[in-house]
Design a protein around this nucleic acid. Structure first.
Lengths: 112, 112
DNA sequence: AAATATACATAAATTTCTTATGCATAAGAA
DNA sequence: TTCTTATGCATAAGAAATTTATGTATATTT
């Protein structure tokens, strides 16, 4: 219990969606937001998050802005134009996948 | 288009669920069943399927029975008692995960 | 003063898949 | 009758996306 596993491939979608909603977030904030929204069911580890953010930035989907708050660094990320487009794609892919899995895994629900 | 990616971690659940429904299946049959049920949206590759079946067998979740049909081998897999229990777990994990993702990704749907 | 929270980062190991390749028989098309 | 497609298994190399472990540093709470 506690930490259910992250299905591999969904982290990117989570990050993009949160940034679509909140416009501007930093890494630690994302981990807390996910914990809050999922009531602790999902915990994003830093070892997964930071490399993922770096990759999204390298791929041109995110812009970064470094800010110093209370003598500590924050790296605020926001969607680029391309990032916004990719978010739409990722979200529809996820919905398709969920539908597909429901068809496989609860066929009675679909067939009745 | 065509082959949407498999979210990593879900293949095991798919296999277990199909075996829960069909009692006894062989590898090739599983690939065809998935193709059929998902209308071609999901294609299980052999490179993923066979190692996965071997692991499930090694973990004691599946039993295997080799049969010769038309001079060709088939390896029929079926759930062990332990496999049946694990199927229930995997399915509820998947449903939880889908709910969690819906909460993250379509929060308006949940909050309204 | 010590523990917890905030904030970033990276490296090694693991899991899980894709892609490529191989072998073999059966059936259908050319 | 030869070539292609379908049936049926398998493994190996490589890639992708994590987990786990570790490190640094400042701020806040106990």
């Amino acid at each position: 219990m506690g930490n259910s596993n992250l299905y591999k491939g969904s982290l990117t979608t989570i990050i993009l969606k949160l940034l679509e909603e909140h416009d501007k977030m930093y890494g630690y904030e994302i981990t807390q937001k996910v914990k809050e929204l999922t009531k602790g069911e999902l915990k994003i580890t830093e070892g997964a998050l930071y490399p993922s953010l770096h990759k999204l930035e390298a791929d041109g989907l995110l812009d970064v802005e470094v800010v110093k708050v209370d003598n500590r660094l924050r790296k605020y990320y926001k969607l680029t134009e391309q990032g916004t487009k990719e978010t739409v794609n990722k979200l529809s892919e996820l919905q398709d996948y969920i539908k597909t899995m429901q068809a496989l895994v609860s066929p009675k629900l679909i067939l009745e």
